[in-house]
Each structure stands twice: as C-alpha cells, then as structure tokens.
C-alpha cells in the first residue's frame, strides 16, 4: 500500500486535529490545523487516502516541512 505523507507547510503549534485514524481523506482536504501567524493554517493532503497514523498531538510545536500524519492509498 502506497504511503502518503501529510506535511505542514508552516511552523507553528498544532491547534486542532480534525480527523481520526481510519478516516478517508480526499485530496485537498485538511487533516489538522496549525496555529501560525495568528491564523489557523490547514495541513492539506495531496492525494486521497486513509489516515493511518497521526504523528502529533494538539499543542505540539511543528516545523515547516514536518510530516504530521501518514495516509495509505
């Protein structure tokens, strides 16, 4: 099964995780929100897949480019 990495495009704090393991997430939909620059920036998935693993929890500091969740195609 192909592995799809969801990466945050911004540095910030994890604000809200909108999905749970096993959820089907369509390409372009958010998996979580990151608090950054006084905004809540979504982490969008690039390809449709099933959420396999969430690598962060709410309140965690994340860096630009960091993988925050793994999906399977």
């Amino acid at each position: 099964m192909a592995r799809i990495e969801a990466k945050t495009e911004v540095t910030g704090l994890v604000a809200l995780i909108e999905s749970k393991v096993g959820d089907r997430i369509a390409a372009g939909d958010p998996v979580m929100l990151i608090d950054s620059m006084k905004m809540q920036i979504p982490v969008l998935v690039e390809e449709t897949g099933t959420l396999h693993q969430i690598l962060v929890t709410v309140g965690d500091a994340v860096s630009e480019g960091q993988v925050v969740a793994i999906l399977e195609k």
Binding site: E9, S36, M37, I41
Partner: peptide, 8 residues
C-alpha cells in the same frame, strides 16, 4: 497566499 503563514 493566506495558506502560507497567512500570506506574510
């Protein structure tokens, strides 16, 4: 682009 650091 507000999706990237609110467009900063």
């Amino acid at each position: 682009n507000p999706m990237i650091y609110g467009g900063a």
